[in-house]
Structures are given as structure tokens and as C-alpha cells.
């Protein structure tokens, strides 16, 4: 079973976000970059399926050179090879642009399954994976917490929680799955794994290598355009509730929620 995992490098979730001078992007100077947490579940699931069915796991990242580090992490976990799509013309591309570059990379590679994270924790949109499936003409199964691949490796059932219920979805392969927390517990890269990863193939590709026209990418070609980024709205200072005892404080809180906030 040949599996592709697309990964994105994002600021660690501890990061304080600072908006840059031009108000169109964020300050990147103090950021610790990590593999998007939801993509890690995809990498782990791909490795488990490979262990069961054999085949190869290919990692595809898109972005500047620093993304290599996250691809190496996935290789150290056990993936076989990596591809980095790195082209300055991609800077500022929207989801459609990113998915187009990924699709061009994947077309022609034989594969049974593709994993992406259900969303990236930077732009929180969850669009690229689904768009990639559309461009490749394959079904997608979104926000999945459990996968059961049939013994013959030709179809699978996936569990998708939605509000108040879990849908069990069946599909034939190839298909694309977007991974949700709960799918598995990702392994840590072992020291021998890290050593081995250094020797694994990691290819870099530009848009020209993919036969794509750079003018169709980047800010200029984006359908969605950033007017500005702003800090979150400030909340008014709150009240600390006085009282001699927990009971008194609870009584005061109940009164405020009822009479002032009018939420109870």
C-alpha cells in the first residue's frame, strides 16, 4: 500500500503571535516551527498501515527550506522518502494554489491513500486537503478518528464524529483522509530513526519542475486576499467576586449571572 502524507510546518501552539508592520503577515523571528499536530496523526497512521500492508510512505511538504526539518522528523518516525515543494513564487498562495501545486506533484505517483491533517493550527481553515482530493478526482473522508482498512487493502471504513453522532463512512481506494486527534498516538522518532532519516531521499522541486506556471501562484493569483491582520478584540476587565466563604462567593456569582449578565 503506497501512502502519501502532506504536511505543513506551523508555529508551535505556545507561540505568541505578533503582527508584522505591514499588517498582512506575522513576525516570524521568534517562532519555533513544528509539524502541524494534526499532520502527525496522518504520519503515524500511514506508518501503521505500511507495517501491516507493506509499501511505501512518501512525505510531501510545501514551503521554504525550513520545512525540510519537519519532513526529516517524519522520515525519522519511519517514512521512506520526502519531497519539498519550494519556490519563492508560492509565497502568499491561498488554499487553491497550494492544493494545485500538491496535486501536480502527486499526479503520476501511484498511491492508494493520502493523509493530511484535518486543519493546520495556523490558518485554521481545513481547506487544502479537501481541495487536493477534488483536484485529484478522488473522494475525501474528513476529520477521521478511526480507520479500518479491508484485508485486501482495496477499501476502508472510517469514523467521523459530527455534532452528536459518529458517521461510519465506507469508500474504495484511492482516497484522501484528513486526520483528527484521537486517530492514534504518534510515535516519537528514535535515535536510530533520526540517524537513518539523514540518508533517506529528500527531493526538492520548484514550480517549473512540476510543469507549473509561477504566475498562477502567490499573492497575485490568490482568490482570497488579506486586507489586514489585527490582534483579537480586547475583553473588558472582569470582576473578582468577594466573599467570606466559597458559599458566599457562589451566591454572589449566581446573582450576577442571573441579574447582570442575564445568562442564567
Amino acid at each position: 500500500m503506497n501512502i502519501i502524507v502532506c504536511l505543513k510546518q506551523v508555529p508551535d501552539t505556545e507561540t505568541q503571535i505578533k503582527i508584522s508592520q505591514d499588517k498582512k503577515s506575522i513576525e516570524e523571528s521568534d517562532i519555533k516551527w513544528v509539524m502541524n499536530p494534526y499532520d502527525e496523526f496522518g504520519v503515524e497512521e500511514a506508518l501503521r498501515l505500511k507495517e501491516k500492508f507493506g509499501g511505501e510512505v512518501t512525505i510531501i511538504g510545501l514551503g521554504p527550506k525550513r520545512v525540510t526539518e519537519s519532513i526529516r522528523t517524519a522520515l525519522a518516525m519511519g517514512a521512506d522518502k520526502g519531497i519539498l515543494i519550494n519556490d519563492p513564487a508560492l509565497e502568499g498562495s491561498d488554499a487553491l494554489g497550494v492544493a494545485k501545486a500538491l496535486a501536480a506533484t502527486i499526479k503520476g505517483m501511484g498511491f492508494d491513500l493520502i493523509f493530511t491533517g484535518q486543519r493546520a493550527v495556523d490558518d485554521d481553515a481545513g481547506i487544502v486537503g479537501i481541495t487536493l482530493a477534488e483536484f485529484l478526482g478522488i473522494p475525501h473522508l474528513p476529520v477521521i478518528v478511526k480507520i479500518e482498512v479491508a484485508e485486501d487493502g482495496k477499501s476502508l471504513k472510517a469514523h467521523r464524529p459530527v455534532e452528536g453522532q459518529t458517521l461510519i463512512i465506507e469508500t474504495g481506494l484511492p482516497a484522501l483522509i484528513t486526520a483528527q486527534k484521537g486517530l492514534n498516538e504518534p510515535r516519537y522518532a528514535s535515535l536510530p530513526g533520526i540517524m537513518k532519516a539523514k540518508k533517506k531521499p529528500l527531493e526538492e522541486k520548484t514550480l517549473a519542475d512540476l510543469g507549473l506556471n509561477p504566475s498562477e501562484f502567490g499573492k497575485g493569483a490568490s482568490k482570497l486576499k488579506v486586507i489586514e491582520l489585527t490582534p483579537p478584540p480586547q475583553r473588558a476587565a472582569g470582576k473578582i467576586i468577594d466573599g467570606e466563604s466559597p458559599e458566599q462567593k457562589a451566591a454572589q456569582l449566581a446573582k450576577l449571572l442571573h441579574e447582570e449578565a442575564k445568562v442564567l
Binding site: 506575522i26 482568490k223 491582520l229 489585527t230
Partner: peptide
């Protein structure tokens, strides 16, 4: 249409518009 959405889980907000779309 101008759309405003939280990014970085609400650590920042993006004000967006559409281009030939």
C-alpha cells in the same frame, strides 16, 4: 463581501476580501 475570521485559534484576526472570485 469582507469576511473576518480568527486565525492561530483566535490569537489574531484576518480581514479578507475576494479577488476575481
Amino acid at each position: 463581501l469582507v469576511s473576518i475570521r480568527p486565525i492561530y485559534a483566535g490569537k489574531a484576526y484576518a480581514k479578507l476580501t475576494y479577488q476575481d472570485s
